[in-house]
Design a protein around this nucleic acid. Sequence first.
DNA 1: GATGAATGAGTGTTCATTCAT
DNA 2: TATGAATGAACACTCATTCAT
Lengths: 191, 191, 191, 191
Amino acid sequence: MKKKFYIIDAATRLFATQGFDATTTIQISEEAKVTEPLLYYHFKGKDELYTSILGSAFDEYLSRLDSLKKETKTWFEKIENIITLHFQLIDEKPYDFYLTITNYPTRLKDPENVYKKSVKRQSEWFKSYFTNCLKKGIKSGEFVKVPVDETVNVLVLLIKDILRQQSFSPKIDKKAMNAIIAFCRRSLVAK
Amino acid sequence: MKKKFYIIDAATRLFATQGFDATTTIQISEEAKVTEPLLYYHFKGKDELYTSILGSAFDEYLSRLDSLKKETKTWFEKIENIITLHFQLIDEKPYDFYLTITNYPTRLKDPENVYKKSVKRQSEWFKSYFTNCLKKGIKSGEFVKVPVDETVNVLVLLIKDILRQQSFSPKIDKKAMNAIIAFCRRSLVAK
Amino acid sequence: MKKKFYIIDAATRLFATQGFDATTTIQISEEAKVTEPLLYYHFKGKDELYTSILGSAFDEYLSRLDSLKKETKTWFEKIENIITLHFQLIDEKPYDFYLTITNYPTRLKDPENVYKKSVKRQSEWFKSYFTNCLKKGIKSGEFVKVPVDETVNVLVLLIKDILRQQSFSPKIDKKAMNAIIAFCRRSLVAK
Amino acid sequence: MKKKFYIIDAATRLFATQGFDATTTIQISEEAKVTEPLLYYHFKGKDELYTSILGSAFDEYLSRLDSLKKETKTWFEKIENIITLHFQLIDEKPYDFYLTITNYPTRLKDPENVYKKSVKRQSEWFKSYFTNCLKKGIKSGEFVKVPVDETVNVLVLLIKDILRQQSFSPKIDKKAMNAIIAFCRRSLVAK
DNA sequence: GATGAATGAGTGTTCATTCAT
DNA sequence: TATGAATGAACACTCATTCAT
């Protein structure tokens, strides 16, 4: 059972750094210090190993999103929290969370649509979260009047790039994080 | 000679949509309506075909950046132009320019460092362009006082995501474009 | 594991009869009644398969040379023994020993210099063996006075051709063997 | 027409040094400073190019054998002459004459049996030449009594090895040549 | 749980050869 | 004579996967 964990660990790292196609089952088994057939004992195949990892990553990702503080003093604090959270996530598990934003490997079979479903959930989560924030913030006068839907997209875009940009850097870059937060605050919060 | 162009065309499309590893030489030749060995007559191999395409894409990309209007009324107009340009680029040649921001395929051999050199040039271009804009704009009072280096990074991040996001959509999404521009303007331009 | 032996066996035969370049991996696998990839499970590639076979052949060859009787009544008997041994070797394993004298395939990669090292050992062995024989035999008056170094070369030449000539004949040709021995005896032994 | 000669020249050199299989038509054309299709204008293909070269080489070889002095004082002089001739041949055209003794490439098509016929002629020439020498020499008392047929084989063997051994050395090695002649003289000529 | 041995299907690449000009 | 462009057939090799134990 310990060995199963090694496999997952090695595979996650390799998939994230090299991509699905460039990672071979032999590489995974060697990196995990395990023989190749064991991989097939624990998983149906390379595809299932990937979707399994991806599924877990998305599950944790979404549950972390859900665990964000509900109560905040200002609406911008909600946006700030989400940016901060992503820097934390990447710091904890860079490879796992990076996989949630890489392109879906074209050759991967995903009969249960693990990827598709998760992406949909994630995208809906963001949309509803940011839409709510913006609408309420504008209404209360905290935010300037911005076109809600389009601005939501800009924010999602920025969030994704945090994952992409930071994934393989070792430590939280506080300056980068604060710059992004400040950039958004100036753009949204009314004087 | 016409056939060489077909090969480049097909390869660009496939590399951009499927990735380097998932694209096979036989796929390229079929898509280009050409036999496989012809690919090896015009290029040393799959690797050279890729780096050749990537090199051209970067060359055009960088020359388009250089051709941006030097004279502008305001400093923000310079930033606006660069955002607009990227929407145009993607509209013209979505596959070519998408390749400039995808991850470098780990298994690709690039003995002449086409990729590395181009990325360096591109990154230096952006850094110098945005740094100049911000410094001058702040000095003149057009922009609010922001930490220059960190804000440059935020802008670069946003630009790259325009390429990524829009690459496979057919038409320029004016609303999305204007939202990004407006988002940046509010964040930078002093009232 | 039995199948690994079949591969070696088939490869040896084919390399010896057709040469390295003219022998394809598929031919070897068919001859060995094995699938092609198995060849790559047991050996790194065609090159390593060849050098592995060549290495074993040289090892056995040199150990057989070393096992020659040390004690002989006359010095010529030593030369006679070496000629006889070569007829025996070819009779036992015609393909293996033939490989030790064929030209080194120009396209073969031999990073550990299996071939080069073995050829050097072999050539030094012959030189020292024959030089010793001739010098001692001349001193004792058994042999006529011949220029040692040059005559050594003539003898080596003759030995190699025994391997070459006999390799693909099924049985020891006693007449041919005795003719060579007699030819040498008349040329060397004093009346 | 000059270019045809370049092709033959380059091909001969490459075939001799690398072997038939390891030599590609591209290599030949590059070495000859000619384009590949020209090779097919002058010859039916790689096979015909090889057999053509081989045929010429054999023709010249056999005509040189025929041109040996008929009149000699002693019978051994005839044997001496043939050894000397081979050192000369190799000195003049090392690649051409080397090809006459390399193994016949298994994959080569030779519909007119250029190789087979030439080898037969050559072998018959040697047999008749040496048999005549030995018989006459023994009868006249110049040679010791040796078994003719077997000794002929020994001599042929030695001759072939001269070609093989010397082919890629630049200059005639007089010492080696004299050693071989002396070796044979002692073995054959009666005191 | 775990593994050494084995394989079907495919991958990038090369080669001798031909075609159109 | 001469060549740039093109191809059918084959080649060495890899990969995800399975089987027997």
